[in-house]
Amino acid sequence: STQGAVSPGPPSVQPPWERASTPNKVPYYINHSTETTHWDHPQMLDLAAHLLQLNEVRFSAYRTALKLRSLQNKLCLDCVPLMTASEAFDLHGLRGQNDRILDIADMVLILRAIFESAAAEHPNVVDIPLCVDLALNWMLNVYDSQRTGQIRVLSFKVGLVILSKGHLEEKYRYLFRLIADPQQKADQRKLGLLLHDVLQVPRQLGEVAAFGGSNIEPSVRSCLGDREDLEVTHFLAWLNQEPQSLVWLPVLHRLAAAES
């Protein structure tokens, strides 16, 4: 592992904390005071403690939405418009590359571009090194718990877009476009991959049981019905019924809209 200087720019942690990397460049955090090491950034550990307190909230969709809103705020993804994330993905050659594997350097490059753009609009809110490290931390927690240092492009895009700023239908349409073929249709396999990646988000929050568990087959069957493949209108019609497996996402949007 490499302790000490890791990436250029100011560090996102202060003593007694230090950021280091494994041989496959996965960041981890050293606490010299407690002499411990952690995959989670110290501020992610604080956030996790806050999210545990939210377990007292009774209703599962509302509870999950509160957790997601806290996460969105902490990671400053509520300052990242969906288009900003989408443009960053395109600029880094990720369009149509769902199965390509991203390594840590790729992810950091894309996250940096995203948060530099967000910081231009919200300079007093977005701390770029911190946001990059927290977003990377969250994405690895959701899609690379074994810390191999690799995430598929589809998963990376889904994880960021879900928490980005945008209208609910905009997110739904974007998610569909990720799996649509040139005829704007998606098959059962691709729908399954998409729903699997979407459901990893509440799973990481300990909430997957509330939304039907991690088996996405019932959701795939419910969405497709008798069809062999899916068009965007069918996908939107299904989502507008707020199926149980995904109801946490429209509830997150209602929660955010209600804040004002």
Binding site: T37, L205, G206
Partner: peptide, 17 residues
């Protein structure tokens, strides 16, 4: 009651500076 998702692999052990 919600359960945390487990992380199976531990980070590198602590090494004093």
């Amino acid at each position: 009651r919600p359960k945390p998702a487990p992380t199976y692999r531990k980070p590198p052990p602590y090494v004093p500076p």
